[in-house]
Design a binder for these strands. Sequence first.
RNA 1: GGGCUGUUAGCUCAAUUUGGCAGAGCAACGGACUCUUAAUCCGUAGGUUACAGGUUCGAUUCCUGUACAGCCCA
Length: 486
Amino acid sequence: MESSKDRLLEERKTKLRWWIEKDEDPYSARFGPRHSIEWVRNSHEDLKAGEKRETKVSLAGRIVALRGHGKTSFADLKDRTERIQIYAREDRLKKRYPLFQKLDIGDIIGVKGKVFKTKSGELTVETFDFLLLAKSLRPLPEKWHGLQDVELRYRKRYLDLIANPGVRDIFLQRGAIINTVRNFLNERGFLEVETPMMQPLPGGATARPFRTHHRALNEDLYLRIAPELYLKKLIVGGMEKVYELNRNFRNEGIDRLHNPEFTMLEVYSAYDGYEEMMKLTEELIQWVAKQIKGTLEISYQKERIHLSSPWKRMTFIQALKEIGNLEVNLKNEVEVRAAASEVGLNVEGLTGAQILEHLLDHQVVPKLVQPTFIVDYPVATSPLAKRKKEDPSLVERFEVFMGRQEIGNAYSELNDPIEQRARFAETEAGKGSMDEDFLEALEYGMPPTGGLGIGIDRLVMLLTDSVSIRQVILFPQLKSKSSEEG
RNA sequence: GGGCUGUUAGCUCAAUUUGGCAGAGCAACGGACUCUUAAUCCGUAGGUUACAGGUUCGAUUCCUGUACAGCCCA
């Protein structure tokens, strides 16, 4: 009746009691000062095979491999930075040697000892003293193949991090990318701000929101789908250059490119328009790539992406014609519908503007490998963007694509409150509930402003050559399993 | 929402084609071993084949449904 899993757990618990009987605390409170394994490696690489250094080092980490040889034992110890071999001998550890032999793969220990190089040249720490810091009760995934089961990797990311070396790198890079983005914007005088994630009215994008309820206020609130309208209120308030880099929530499908919570950068710059935002986008992404990858040539899914300027630009109409091979008069909805049906899109219940966006997504975006700005969108696709003077059927908007994905979206922000009200009224969302707070703010006067949004997860995917957004989110959303504890 | 595929020991994988005692490596357990490193050698144990039904003398294998996941499409 007892499963193998239970038996393994029982064996470890027996060992746990053994340590306690030996008066050894299997869960220590702390392990004083320690060297990083990386430091130990770097500062001892000059040792020759067989040579020992007399100064002692102090290390802590997880045992990831054990090789016992009777009166000597080897272990591999891993910390945040690196892996190193540990060597223990009975004649050195004396009475404590049996304790060392009792250690398991997965245990977390502290080690004090001297660094030497084995005759085969492996840098090794000879253990003079060691301490069990945390007893591991479960077997780790297999050492050679790691953890392959994608579902387990996402559900138990900590095991993925222990077993699969590349995973940590992705998240180190993610952290570095976000840092770099902040540095870039801070240096250019942008202020990072935080606006509500719980909003009485979800705005700034078209997406189904998550709803929650505030008890004390007795009011429904929505998790934000975008921070846009709040950030523009700050522009009205004279803050001029702001950005927010944080989570948005959209209650929609989950796939390779979508997680219900995702990280978005929004930047607003007063007295600028979408031309300036294009420049900013190009510089930002080039800067990040340079800092993270050291080059403007990146490789994504076996394709080379050249990030050096200038990036290709084409209008929305051009893109549909030249890349999508669609000859359509955008103003003629009947024609647009026919073209969409012809390429196999289901246009049932969609507005003309939505169909145009679908056409772009399906016929054009999958072909955009090199960085490309698509500019001048039909007005109906973008209720928050300013119309083009030369052609009021279009707006000053661009989206930027690379690696066959959308990376960012920007407008010259619509700052005419009367037109904004009218444009809201024309949209699906606007019909239900007009964001009067936002409109009132505009009525006080918002300077001309360029606004930009960049999907940070997408950017991380590009720079870490990841196919799925789940690879760059530590704990991606999965359906919960009503399973055994454990 | 639709289609296809997958789910076998703690982990990585066989066996399913053509139904016939479910195997291996790592990890574990016992033993040997004082420079090993995917340590080695001897031995032991570990399975409700995701779950629920069905067909069959007999199902991991065929059929239906469910759950979760992956890929593609909408």
